[in-house]
Amino acid sequence: MERSEIFDIAHQRHPIAAPVAPERLRELIGWLSPSDGARAVDLGCGEGEWLQHLLLDHPGITGVGIDHMLPTTGARRSAERGLSDRVRWIETDAPAWSDGEFDVVLCVGASHAFGGLADMLGAVRRHLRPGGQALVGDSIWESTPSASALAALEVSADAYPDLAGLVRAFHEHGFEPSFGHVSTLAEWDDYQFSWTGSLVDWAVRRAPTTEDRSQALAAARENRDAWLSGARRELGFATFALHDVAAGPTGVTVARTP
Rank of each mutant, 00 (worst) to 15 (best):
D138F: 00
L128F: 01
S183L: 05
E187I: 15
D162F: 04
A123N: 05
S156P: 01
E142N: 15
M120G: 14
S183C: 14
V182M: 13
L117G: 01
R129P: 00
L150C: 12
L163I: 05
W188Q: 08
A118S: 10
A152R: 03
P130R: 05
A113H: 09
G122T: 06
Q133K: 14
V182S: 15
G132T: 11
A151H: 11
L185N: 11
V136T: 02
G131I: 04
D162N: 13
G197W: 03
A157I: 08
T144Y: 06
L185V: 12
L153S: 15
V182G: 10
H181S: 09
L117F: 09
L128Q: 06
V200C: 11
E154L: 13
H127R: 13
A147G: 08
W141H: 05
L185S: 14
L121A: 06
E176H: 05
R125E: 06
G180A: 12
H171F: 04
L163D: 03
R168T: 11
P145Q: 10
E142P: 02
L153R: 07
M120V: 11
V136W: 01
W202K: 10
G174N: 03
H173M: 01
W202R: 09
A118Y: 07
R126F: 02
I140F: 02
T184Y: 05
G131E: 04
H173G: 03
W188N: 11
A118E: 13
G115E: 10
G116Y: 03
F179P: 01
H181A: 05
W141Q: 03
G122N: 10
F193D: 10
L166R: 00
H127Q: 07
S156T: 14
W141C: 05
A159G: 04
A123C: 07
S146N: 15
